[in-house]
Amino acid sequence: MEGAQVALLDRSAEGLDRAAQQIGSQSSTVLADVRDPSAVEAAVASAAKSMGGIDGVVNAAGISLWRSLEETSHDEWRNVMSINLDGPFHVCKAVIAELKKAGRGTIVNIASGAAFRQTPNFGAYCTSKAALVMMTKVLAAELVGLNIRANSICPGVIYTPMVERTLSGSTDRKQRTAQYFERQGMKRFGTVEEIAKLALFLTGPDSSFTTGSAYSADGGSVYH
């Protein structure tokens, strides 16, 4: 992490421990659910205290749902929105005060290429990520005079446990993989490391003139 101190927030203790082991001694962990604003506020306060302040945040929590809008229940819709959209809102709302104290800061929200492409049977997810892109742009406009930047990353299909679960649950793994690559030039999955490097760029000084942008990292997908 280029010498940065990193506070990890997750609702899974196992996931936190695994990530902390990968990062090493420069990391600390806070157990919290991004759907709970009170828990997020407490987590941000704890992280700020342990690190002596906060000057950047990356919101990466997310959930997927493969269901037509007609068949999506109210509870399923709310669950997707509560994690993909409300979660980043809660974190950003809690962390902005700390960024103001630092006199600078960066916000990076992990959205999705699906924010720009109407995908049948993926409506709740597409809607949540499109809203997250716009929320990030509004944050950038509101915070631009405070030396706080906000950008979003819009990945294509990244090989994560969530994607593996989708492939494993498919009746035809080969066909489903081909569907992923149908409109994607590189014809491969992206990696978590590739997205992490873009997030690192957006939190660092090399992107100092960049705010309100939505960065596509999708292997040449045709979303627009």
Results as ranks from 00 to 15, higher is better:
K49G: 10
M162W: 02
M81E: 10
G113T: 02
L139M: 03
S28L: 15
A43K: 10
F122D: 08
V40R: 11
W77E: 00
Q118G: 15
E142L: 04
P37Q: 04
G145E: 03
S25W: 00
I96E: 02
A97V: 14
M162H: 03
A94N: 03
L65K: 01
G156I: 07
L143Q: 00
R165I: 09
M51F: 12
Q26Y: 12
G53M: 02
L69H: 03
A141F: 09
R149K: 03
G3P: 04
E193L: 08
Y223T: 14
G15N: 04
S221E: 14
T72L: 03
A94W: 12
E164K: 15
G123R: 08
I110Y: 02
Y159V: 13
L143A: 03
S68L: 07
A94R: 05
F116E: 02
V80D: 09
V91I: 08
A140Y: 06
S28Y: 12
G87V: 00
E193Q: 12
S50H: 14
V58R: 02
T160D: 09
G52A: 00
K100Q: 14
V95N: 11
V222M: 10
I153G: 08
Y125M: 02
D75K: 10
H74G: 07
V80F: 11
Y125V: 10
E41K: 14
R78Y: 11
F116V: 07
Q175N: 10
S38V: 15
S213P: 08
N79T: 13
Y159Q: 14
E76V: 01
V44L: 06
S213V: 07
F116I: 01
Y223S: 12
N151M: 06
T203P: 03
F201R: 09
I158P: 03
S73A: 05
D206G: 05
A114F: 05
R165T: 08
V80H: 00
G113V: 00
T106K: 08
V144I: 13
M186I: 13
T119W: 01
A48I: 06
L9N: 01
T210Q: 05
K197P: 05
A114I: 06
K137I: 10
F209M: 12
S216L: 15
C92D: 01
S27C: 06
H90F: 05
I23F: 09
G87L: 11
D75L: 01
S152C: 05
D55C: 05
T72P: 01
V44Q: 09
N59R: 02
G56R: 07
R67A: 04
I107E: 04
Y215W: 15
I110G: 01
M186R: 14
Y215Q: 07
G185R: 14
G56H: 11
K49H: 13
G62N: 03
R165H: 13
N109D: 00
D36E: 05
V157G: 05
T166W: 15
L139K: 06
I195A: 00
E194K: 11
A214C: 00
S152V: 09
V58T: 01
G53K: 04
A94S: 12
A178W: 07
T177L: 11
D55T: 09
I54W: 03
N79K: 12
V163K: 12
F181G: 07
T106H: 09
N79R: 14
S128K: 00
L85M: 10
V95Y: 00
